[in-house]
Design a protein around this nucleic acid. Structure first.
Lengths: 145, 145
DNA sequence: TGTTGTTAGTTACAAAATCAACCGTTAACA
DNA sequence: TGTTAACGGTTGATTTTGTAACTAACAACA
C-alpha cells in the first residue's frame, strides 16, 4: 500500500513563486533602500508616478492592488522626503493629485534604469523560451491578462 | 527624439513574481489560517516537518531560507498549540530536534491534501507546456536547481 | 433641500517582521 | 587545558503591516 508522495513543498506553486519572488527582489530592494531610503511600497508608488505621470492614490491602488492604507503611508513618506507633492482636485475635493518633484523624477529615472538592467540580468539566467513563457504564465497567475 | 520606453512596471520580473505569488497564495493562506490559526511561517515549518520528518530549526532554515528568528517564533507557537514537540540533542545541546505530534501530523495531512488540489487548480489555468516551463524557470530564479 | 449611502483618504490599535544584542554550547587551537 | 571564536537558538526594541473605524466630501433621490 505504498502511498506515492511526489508532492514536495518544492513543487507547490505558491511556495515556488514566493521563493523566486523573494530571491529575485533581494538585490534590487537593497538598492532603493540604500540610495533613497525607500521601502517597497514607496518604490512602487514612485514607479507608478514616474511611469504614468500625475495620479491619485486611488489610481495607484487600482493599478497595483496595494491596499489604500499602504499607499497612504507611502505617499506620506514620499512627500516628507520631497519626492512628490500633492495638488488638490477642485472638482472632487476628496482626492488629491500626486506629482513627482524634480528630485522624485531623478530617483525614478535612476531606479528605472537599474530595474531595466536588473531585469535583463535575471532574464539572462533563463533561455529565451523560458523567459517568454514565464512572463505569460506569471501574467495569468497574477490575473493581469 | 522620442525615447522608447517599453519598460513598464508590469514587465519587471520581480514585480510580476510578487504579484503572482501574492495572488496565488491568497486563498490557501485563508485555509490554514481559518482551520488551524496558523501564520505562513508556521505553515511552512509544519510542512517541512511533515515532509522530511524530524529536523532542527537550523535544518528548516537551510531548506526554507527563513530567518532564524522567524523560525524560532513559529516553532514556539506550534509547540504552544501542540502541533510539535522538542527533543534535546544530547550530542549537541545547542540544538533541538523537532517532531510533529499526532495532531501536527493530522494538520499536515489535511493541508497537504488541500495544497495538492489547490496546486492542480492553479496549474489548470495554464497549458501543460506553460506549467512545465514555469516550474523550471521558477526553480532557477529561486536558486533551487 | 434633506436624508441615506458611497467614496477617497487618514488614523489608531493590534499583529507581525526585522535587527541587533544576547545566552549557553561547541570548536579551534595556542 | 585556556582562551577566543563560531554556532544554534532566543529575546527585546523598533519598524512595518493589517484591520477597522473614522472624517470629509460627494451622489442619489425622495
Amino acid at each position: 500500500m505504498a502511498q506515492k508522495d511526489e508532492f514536495a513543498l518544492q513543487s507547490f506553486l505558491p511556495y515556488l513563486l514566493n521563493q523566486a519572488a523573494e530571491e529575485s527582489s533581494l538585490a534590487f530592494q537593497q538598492i532603493y533602500k540604500d540610495r533613497y531610503g525607500m521601502l517597497r511600497t514607496e518604490w512602487r508608488v514612485l514607479f507608478h508616478l514616474g511611469l504614468y505621470g500625475r495620479l491619485t492614490a486611488k489610481d495607484i491602488g487600482a493599478r497595483s492592488r496595494m491596499h489604500k492604507t499602504k499607499i497612504s503611508r507611502a505617499v506620506q513618506r514620499l512627500e516628507d522626503r520631497r519626492f512628490l507633492t500633492r495638488a488638490p482636485d477642485d472638482a472632487d475635493r476628496r482626492q488629491e493629485y500626486l506629482d513627482l518633484t524634480t528630485q522624485g523624477r531623478a530617483a525614478y529615472r535612476d531606479l528605472h534604469g537599474v530595474a531595466q538592467s536588473y531585469d535583463a540580468a535575471l532574464a539572462d539566467t533563463l533561455t529565451a523560451e523560458e523567459e517568454r513563457i514565464l512572463r505569460i504564465a506569471l501574467r495569468k497567475l497574477a490575473r493581469m491578462d
